[in-house]
């Protein structure tokens, strides 16, 4: 499995809530492409149109606080962003992200050292985040193999389906 993610940083502050990640006015659909068009709309109207495949969202503490809407990690994943790095995550978002196959990492030191637009590379398996723009490298606790398989499979349901086939 290719465990390296690469892209440029989109930097946000503390307590980014699920209402700004995907406002409730768009929750009358669960279509990923449509949710992606409104991703981060109420905190950064330019995100959805300018984000490139592989880009990484970098934020402060308590990212994803608020609602249990799985539409939030769905929107981020469908936007093309490859991961979220934050000081900490709200617990329901944390669960939902892995269930959806969106990798997320707690790396407080890295968050301090990253500015918007920096080129980042993340090795999920080894737990290394490189800021290529600034030439700095940070270590974080790698996600357990089970979670990595989950991400590789594209989420919990695909993971269950793949395991079912294997038995």
């Amino acid at each position: 499995m290719n465990s390296e993610l690469r892209g440029k940083a989109w930097k946000y502050g503390d307590d980014v809530d699920t209402d700004v990640i995907i406002p409730a006015r768009y929750l009358n659909t669960s279509d990923p492409a449509e949710l992606a068009r409104h991703c981060m709309e109420d905190i950064d109207a330019s995100f959805a149109s300018k984000v490139s495949n592989g880009d990484i969202i970098v934020a402060g503490k308590n990212f994803g606080c608020g609602s249990s809407r799985e539409h939030a990690p769905i929107a981020i994943k469908a936007s093309g962003a490859s991961a979220v790095v934050a000081r900490s995550f709200a617990r329901i978002f944390y669960r939902n992200a892995f269930n959806m196959g969106l990798p997320i990492f707690e790396a407080p030191e890295a968050v301090d050292g990253i500015e918007a637009g920096d080129r980042l590379a993340v090795d999920m398996e080894k737990g290394i985040l490189r800021n290529e723009t600034k030439g700095r490298e940070y270590r974080f606790t790698p996600i357990p193999p089970f979670m990595q398989e989950l991400v590789a499979a594209g989420g919990l349901l695909n993971y269950i389906a793949i395991r079912k086939k294997g038995t």
Partner: peptide, 10 residues
């Protein structure tokens, strides 16, 4: 406690 839709499905 609150969970997401996938957890509800499971």
């Amino acid at each position: 406690t609150g969970v997401g839709s996938t957890d509800l499905a499971a």
